[in-house]
């Protein structure tokens, strides 16, 4: 295992690449901020999880944008991604259409799955994206997709994402062994945001780094500290290249940050560092670094944010103006129709 420490002081990335990373992170954050607003808007005064424009659980990814931006920068839409119950950042960074993503979350007919999947079950044939609310259970289907890519002798890869809590599930370990055994083109990503809902990592996992577990399966393991998008980008470059060239899987654990609650409505009383969490927000930090490096001006940065907000507003507007499914739709799609 190697540990890559925080800042890469002199960036090896081009100006355009660095701007793109910031742009992606702004787009994700703007999206999550918009969902946050609409999610809570009509759940008051007595907070009712089943009420409102967006009923049900909501797991937002604020703080984890560097993971998505840094990894997906290396992917094409032909690469498969399987994500978790907290999937928006990966979906957006992988290029999912924002209108259809928003519509799915709002449960509308125009959503990716006509509103049937909801925010934890985003399936997009265009970007080969899928996710599951059952933790670690996205890993085995990622193997199968990688197996298909390998059998067809393509250079496509699969990226399988879990959180650090899911790394204690059996499916996680079974998948690592299978991928290494069959030398599948997979990048396993563990997003370590320190918390499995309310349980701190130290109380759930016997070792300090899941990247150490890679050695047990004969694959490289890299833990990236600091939630730094460029360090993540560099580690992912290596892992993706290894997968594409047929040299097998890599396990990347990325120490990131859950800026908000596990789910919306989570008061996070269990979290001692709560009052200082915002000081570690990765987006202002990266933006300041790019300004200091002369990559862009404050005005450029503000324009990136405005552009992101405008795009997100359009997507949310599209979702809100889309029809809700008809009641008879509820009974469809158990089996292939007409088969």
């Amino acid at each position: 295992m190697t540990v890559q420490d925080t800042a890469v002081s002199a960036s090896s990335l081009t100006v355009q690449e660095r701007r793109e990373l910031l742009r992606t992170m702004h787009l994700i954050r703007s999206f999550e901020e918009a969902i946050l607003r609409d999610y809570h808007a009509d759940k008051a005064p007595a907070w009712d999880i089943g009420a409102g424009l967006i009923p049900g659980e909501m797991h937002l990814s604020a703080g984890q944008e560097p993971v998505a931006a840094g990894i997906c920068a290396h992917l094409t839409r032909d690469d498969a991604v399987t994500a978790t119950h907290r999937p928006h950042h990966m979906a957006i960074a992988h290029g999912m259409d924002l209108d259809r993503l928003a519509a799915e979350i709002f449960g509308r007919e125009t959503g990716l799955g006509k509103g049937r999947g909801g925010h934890m079950h985003l399936f997009d044939p265009d970007t080969h994206f899928s996710c599951s609310g059952i933790i670690a259970e996205g890993y085995p289907p990622a193997l199968g997709q990688a197996f298909a890519f390998q059998r067809r002798q393509t250079d496509r890869i699969a990226v399988a994402v879990t959180g650090e809590g899911a790394a204690n599930q059996g499916a996680f370990h079974e998948s690592l062994n299978l991928a290494a055994l069959w030398k599948l083109p997979v990048v396993f990503v563990v997003e370590d945001n320190d918390w499995g809902i309310s349980v701190p990592r130290a109380a759930s996992t016997a070792i300090a780094s899941n990247a150490d577990r890679a050695a047990a399966y004969g694959m490289p393991g890299i833990r990236v500290e600091g939630n730094d998008v460029e360090a993540i980008h560099a580690a992912a470059a290596e892992a993706v290249a290894r997968a594409r060239s047929g040299d097998g899987p890599t396990l990347l654990e990325i120490h990131t940050l859950r800026l908000w609650g596990h789910f919306e409505g989570d008061a996070q009383g269990y979290r001692p560092e709560l009052s200082t969490v915002n000081e570690h927000d990765p987006i202002p930090a990266y933006q300041a670094r790019l300004v200091a490096d002369g990559v862009l001006s404050d005005e450029d940065a503000a324009a990136l944010k405005e552009e992101a907000v405008a795009r997100v507003d359009a997507a949310i507007g599209f979702a809100k103006n889309s029809p809700t499914p008809q009641p008879e739709e509820a009974l469809r799609y158990v089996f292939v129709e007409g088969a």
Binding site: P141, L143, G144, F147, A148, R151, E174, S175, N177, L178
Partner: peptide, 22 residues
Amino acid sequence: SPLAESGIIGTSIGLAMRGYRP
């Protein structure tokens, strides 16, 4: 396959998503 039923089924799901009939 290894003794890994979750992996066998899950891998088959992924293969089926990409055009195979496992």
